[in-house]
Design a protein around this nucleic acid. Sequence first.
DNA 1: TCTAAAAATGACAACGTTGGACATTTTGTT
DNA 2: AACAAAATGTCCAACGTTGTCATTTTTAGA
Lengths: 341, 341
Amino acid sequence: MATIHDVAEKAGVSIKTVSRVLNGGTEVSEKTRNRIEQAMRTLEFTPSAAARMLRGRPTGLVAVIAEQLTTTPDSTEIIKGIQQVCEELGKVLLIGETGGHADVAERLVADMRERRVEGMLFATPFHRRVELAMSLGGTPTALANCFETAGRHMQVVPDDEGGGYAAAQIVLQAGHRKIAFLQLIPGMVATELRARGFHKAMHEHGITSRPEWLIHGAEADDANEFAHLSGAVDRLFASADQPTAILCGNDKMAMRVIFILQRRGLRVPADVSIVGFDDFRLISEALDPGLTTVALPYREIGELTGRFVLDSGGQMARTVRVPCVPVMRGTVAAPPAKAKP
Amino acid sequence: MATIHDVAEKAGVSIKTVSRVLNGGTEVSEKTRNRIEQAMRTLEFTPSAAARMLRGRPTGLVAVIAEQLTTTPDSTEIIKGIQQVCEELGKVLLIGETGGHADVAERLVADMRERRVEGMLFATPFHRRVELAMSLGGTPTALANCFETAGRHMQVVPDDEGGGYAAAQIVLQAGHRKIAFLQLIPGMVATELRARGFHKAMHEHGITSRPEWLIHGAEADDANEFAHLSGAVDRLFASADQPTAILCGNDKMAMRVIFILQRRGLRVPADVSIVGFDDFRLISEALDPGLTTVALPYREIGELTGRFVLDSGGQMARTVRVPCVPVMRGTVAAPPAKAKP
DNA sequence: TCTAAAAATGACAACGTTGGACATTTTGTT
DNA sequence: AACAAAATGTCCAACGTTGTCATTTTTAGA
């Protein structure tokens, strides 16, 4: 690998002049500059980032330590958001995946620290609590889509309560009053927060939500979910008093419910309105009509987390809640006339 | 940031001894080792990767230059495959995104070269031709999901022809003879190769495929696609002679077609069998019955590309075609009795 | 107790680059 | 031709670590 010395020799100048061409300090005459650049090209010279770093230059590296590189768009969007900021600021992204193993995480962090990354971002595929046990050694750190009990760092999470509120508002404002909510798995942060937002909206409209219409639709084992949902829908529509709108914990569930309803001969949105969560385009835009859903701001989470770490040096330690914005497509309409009280 | 010198001073030894503890070459006495390790901990010492590199150690870095970090699982799966190999071999992944801009690509490659990455992988979100114009300077390089005209590097692509053949075989072996193919956008590599495989399979079964059943189902502008597909299905089922199986260029299209068929009162697979391409789980597993589809081996492509670059130092320059394997779920059955000739 | 061998430790250069403090040469201007 | 300005060179130090080789300390054997 050619060094600055080789270039200097080839161009018949001192290494100092080559260095000057590289860093553009004092002026170098047109002629010698050309000669040097020529030499660099023939030798395929590429300055060593290591040597420069050693001299104290910032590394331009940013680490993302992801719990899981999921196939679903969440991780990808977060990383894409961070990547966008890095691109803007001329940084390069280093990726590590822990797979949820504390020892892997520890090893990764140590490695990233050795590489003197300028920032370290921890990302999880869903909104949850984490504990960062390892030593961070002063590296600017922030959390994306997750949070610590002791909030020692900037942490950026979706405003799930606001999301639940927004989802309810969509159908409430369309005139619905009989609203079911097929929630995510119990115990998840998102589940609890969204339920709170949902109840708040209902309460504001003077509606008491029926407990039997508040169902945990998602299953930990996805294979069972369809059957489970089918049963849930059966129960919802068994009695004379049927809901006119169903909020679903994610877009996948929403899609499944739409399928189930269609089989029962119920039209969406004419008979039943549906709202999803996530706004995974692969689903929400693929359906006809397009799925009305509450978008989870993964991209923004990544972007903000990245920006905070790189701007503030990870100094601020607070929690930022990014709004979940409703995306109106075609699965919400006014409740059917006959269903109105 | 504490250096080896600080540690040495704190522990009252020479820097060389600290270095020995770090690298475990010659033995260091129990007593001094403890003293040094203690010092390291109090100082939060982390050795500088830059300094080590300068001394000639491999960097342990692998670069992925992605054309696009898509939200669809393709990019993610490729990267995940590479990441898996990196994890195994103790390397760390550096990510760059070109957005399809040649100048960005050039800048990124230069940056990666400065960092002395041990391998450079170019990845595209779909199977296509690329031209690598920039100077690679001997860095081991390979292409994932794309290929060059001048095959100067290892390039790993999906066997789309085999995939088209496999898709056709699925329905042919289920007894279908009236098979429509809703293809991807014309001109794409995958489109042409799959069509070839499709025709081969049909020919082997002595069937001449009808030109009016060979439709380009996908639209460059996704918003129009649903209407377009709806029209296509209308045409397919307008005459008395109707297809009993439809192959779709991707899972999204398959999902849309299933929706459209369901609205027409046609049951899948009882009346019509459907096969997709991609095996995007978010779709293929979410449907009921699960979508029978031909999986694109994105993960394996990433994995193989990574392995080749890191094992062989990017020396071999050949094209590897990774098989597309059929995934049998529930959308293919025997053709309806009445439709049999 | 002394000696030789083995074990433990240390001094110093080198990796490739940049920066400082100057000295020297080349160029351009009157 | 004289002079200033611009361009280039020299030399050394520094960044943090590791390899080579020399030196010191410890251990074992007589």
